[in-house]
Amino acid sequence: MTEPPSTLLPEERKRAILEQLSTEGRVSAADLCRNLRVSEDTIRRDLRDLDEAGLLRRVHGGALPRAQTTLAYAARTQVQQPAKQALAKVAADMVRPGQVLFIDGGTTTLEIARSLPRELRATVVTVSPPVALALIEHTGIEVHLLGGRIHREAMTTVGAETVEAVRQVRADLCLLGVCSLHGEAGITTPHAEEVAIKRAMIQGSAETLAVATADKLGTVSSFVVAPTERLATLVTEATVPEAVLAPFHKLKLRVVTA
């Protein structure tokens, strides 16, 4: 027996889609057609409208949560400071004396640099001028700030010169800045020019550690850096629900909370 067509209004359908996306972390177009009793064309239009409104990210066969709109760097340094500082302390405690470190750009990685012990002896290679400045008083840390053009939104150096400089380094540990991290979609960023640099850092490191606040998990940005499996460790907030962490546990990541 054929089910009657849906009586939901377009806005009610879209609200239902967003509620399912919030609960499950993804939506399937086929499931939406069946559950909402509408055609594939209708669901495609709904997903397109929601994507254009910045409320989700359309992917083949459905949609994933979209990363939050990126604020200016100075504004980001003031957001979620207690959480970032707690995560940074955990990550900084994982650094060992004598290591060569890549420290990526980002406000959370900046907090990691600030949290490194004053007595630490190590080498830091970074594309972040704020990170380099934060380490000026750490006399036991040799700091290499890689050259290139400044990307004002990310506050990092970018370009072919930067990528080539990263490729000349073999690091023990990469402390990676994360804009979005999803179990299936991988590590993604809103800035295309950062992709090659982040990839080169991951490829040139014996181990990569990502530090991400809860709002970065399960979300997707426009440009793919690498599969999530390239990470060895994820440091995130203790308040993150187990359902959100489950995809990362499934990938055998070491998940540490703070």
Rank of each mutant, 00 (worst) to 15 (best):
T213G: 13
T213A: 13
A214H: 07
A214F: 00
D215F: 06
D215H: 11
K216Q: 05
K216W: 04
K216A: 02
K216F: 10
L217Y: 03
L217T: 00
G218N: 11
G218R: 00
G218T: 01
G218F: 01
G218P: 07
T219N: 04
T219W: 01
V220W: 09
V220Y: 08
S221E: 12
S221D: 15
S221M: 05
S221F: 02
S221W: 02
S221T: 05
S222W: 11
S222E: 15
S222M: 13
S222Q: 14
S222C: 12
S222D: 14
S222N: 13
F223M: 03
F223Q: 10
F223L: 01
F223V: 02
V224Q: 13
V224C: 12
V224S: 13
V224K: 14
V224Y: 13
V225Y: 04
V225K: 06
V225H: 02
V225G: 00
A226H: 09
A226C: 03
A226I: 04
A226D: 06
A226R: 02
A226T: 03
A226G: 06
A226P: 10
A226N: 10
A226L: 10
P227I: 04
P227Y: 00
P227L: 08
T228D: 05
T228N: 01
T228K: 02
T228L: 07
E229A: 15
R230G: 09
R230P: 07
R230E: 14
R230H: 14
L231R: 06
L231Y: 09
L231I: 01
L231S: 10
A232C: 07
A232W: 12
A232S: 15
T233W: 11
T233N: 07
T233P: 06
T233D: 03
L234Y: 08
L234R: 04
L234S: 10
L234K: 11
L234P: 11
L234A: 00
L234C: 09
L234N: 08
V235E: 03
V235N: 03
V235Y: 02
T236F: 09
T236V: 10
T236Y: 09
E237G: 11
E237Q: 13
A238S: 15
A238V: 06
T239N: 08
T239K: 09
T239S: 15
V240K: 04
V240H: 08
V240R: 01
V240F: 09
P241Q: 09
P241L: 06
P241T: 03
P241C: 05
P241I: 04
E242Y: 06
E242T: 04
E242V: 01
E242M: 05
E242F: 03
E242H: 10
L245D: 09
L245H: 11
L245M: 12
L245K: 04
L245S: 12
L245W: 12
A246M: 10
A246R: 15
A246S: 14
P247D: 07
P247Q: 07
P247L: 11
P247E: 02
P247Y: 01
F248G: 05
F248I: 03
F248M: 05
H249A: 11
H249E: 10
H249P: 11
H249F: 15
K250Q: 15
K250H: 15
K250M: 11
L251S: 10
L251K: 13
L251T: 03
L251H: 09
K252C: 12
K252T: 13
K252N: 15
